[in-house]
Design a binder for these strands. Structure first.
Lengths: 299, 299
DNA sequence: CGGACGGTTGATGCGTATCAATAAAGGTGG
DNA sequence: CCACCTTTATTGATACGCATCAACCGTCCG
């Protein structure tokens, strides 16, 4: 029940100097944003907006950025769209910084340019739960829209950089630029999907498989962002991991040790938080083969 | 791995005759929708949104429908907004009907007028997981926006009625009517929140407390919709319950029996799926007191 | 009637939580 | 630099919650 001492306010007042740990970081700052011309993704069918709309959409599925097959391209495209249409300010965050606190008034969302973040929910009776991990290209704060107050804490786990987007500005932008609205909807939809994947993982997998799947997901997540996927640097303690995965820190430790013993992962030289995955496909196979272990029956 | 035989197509072609099981059902069928004047439930102050909405939101935290304190009023307001601005068709569904299948092209969302629905996700290796339960006022299909394909099955657990809203139409409406966009954003935000509450429940509560909390949540959910909250009719088997809550059907059964023995719930005369809650506050207290049972420590 | 399905309850074993001891890593001040 | 403390991680022993297997009952329905 400890409260992180660095408040949002202190962050706000920090000078914005970016440390380039993160290889993913491309955008240096807002200066270059405004002048950016509007380029359409190759072959994008410009969905929805002509009012004489084809009523084919009852036939064809709705397509947002689906036409861009490569997820990394899609992400870059999305971020560029936001930068162009919203021209947000950005700020640097350091490990432990809290972007927003649960319960405080919601009026801003963030788009992550770099870094890793955890979202921590708290129940009325004090239970803490890490409900989500976020990286470059993810949004922070959507859960606060519903009741005008943030539903969780957003904590940086690493040095990083986020775009600051007042929600009112975002709404305004969405009205003016339907493609921005499509982007936002997609982002929220993705968030819903991922939340459900977590639930599925916790509900259907034994702890060992769950840890393995977590690593797979992290690796895939990195790959999708164009980062190294075979060499993970977990930015969290075993306690955090366990909390997120619904098990104790001891169990996490044991599972990792076992995976290491079975050669499915290897611990790095720079501490036990660095994990290399020699063969991702084999690790994924391991998850599948171990998945029958728990509550797999319905009916 | 069984596949429900009734496909979306067959539903689509069904004649729309509504059976009034559900006391929540107000709108009888699509015929009366277009001509429907803004009918207010008795005593509703009808604080309809003036379009010349205050642009204070840049100062105050963003407020969608926050000004309406009563959640039930907010829901009615929301549904009215959608009906007015989208004028959707509606259709009747019967238990077991599938509104959409995972993997099929996404082009429609649904707004629930009545009934109870479960969302079932499937992993690549065949694990099934009920990821969400939905009721009147909830939306179905948002998770499909992200990749243009539905991410889960939506299955009716009871006779009910849903508004059919082509996503293209919804987007168009959002562009034209920002208040509709606010409604949609709120709905998605709420969905994210609830998904996280599920995760928190599964990760931090022992099975007994989890079942108790599930009942509390259902009761609150009913109350919020103006339905009886002290007399629940679960529309699902123990297997479904167990799947949703991350435990086996036997454990669900045992937990319910124990809660019954301890007088926290009482089984109804019309079968063991009907559960009455004599004292909701006491049940909620039980959840809290039992919550320390599992993995409550972080750090 | 018989058979399928849903639900309950008991006996047993496994998977994790829990408790505890130790080691390793990181930070601080002398 | 080292001594010291705190935090983090690992590993073992044990206990307990829940999954699993199985038997049984009630209801529905062809």
């Amino acid at each position: 029940m400890r409260v992180n001492t660095s408040t949002t306010e202190t962050i706000m007042s920090e000078a914005a100097q970016l440390i380039h740990h993160d290889r993913s970081h491309q955008i240096s700052s807002r200066e270059r944003l405004p002048s950016f011309p509007s380029r359409a993704p190759a072959g994008m069918p410009s969905p929805m907006m002509d009012d004489s709309a084809d009523l084919q959409d009852s036939i064809l599925p709705f397509q947002g950025f689906q036409t861009l097959q490569d997820p990394q391209q899609r992400m870059l495209e999305m971020m560029r769209t936001v930068r162009e249409l919203v021209q947000p300010a950005s700020k640097v965050v350091r490990p432990g910084d809290v972007l927003y606190h649960s319960g405080l008034p919601f009026n801003t969302v963030f788009l992550i340019n770099s870094g890793a973040y955890k979202l921590v929910s708290r129940s009325l009776d004090g239970r803490e739960q890490i409900v989500s991990l976020k990286f470059r290209g993810d949004w922070l704060g959507f859960s606060g829209i519903a009741h005008g107050r943030h539903a969780c804490d957003a904590v940086a786990m690493d040095t990083g950089n986020v775009s600051i987007i007042p929600y009112a500005t975002l709404l305004e932008g969405c009205v003016r630029h339907p493609e921005l609205m499509a982007v936002v909807h997609e982002a929220m939809s993705t968030e819903i999907r991922r939340e459900r994947e977590s639930l599925m993982s916790v509900c259907t997998l034994a702890s060992q498989a769950r840890v393995a799947e977590f690593l797979c997901a992290w690796a895939r997540s990195m790959a999708q962002r164009g980062l190294r996927a075979d060499e993970l640097t977990l930015r969290m303690t075993r306690a955090d991991l366990g909390n997120y995965l619904g098990m104790t820190l001891e169990t996490v430790s044991r599972c990792l040790s076992r995976l290491n013993r079975e050669q499915l992962i290897r611990f790095g030289e720079r501490g036990r938080r660095q994990i290399s995955i020699p063969d991702l496909a084999r690790l994924e196979q391991y998850v599948i083969s171990g998945s029958s272990a728990r509550t797999a029956r319905l009916q």
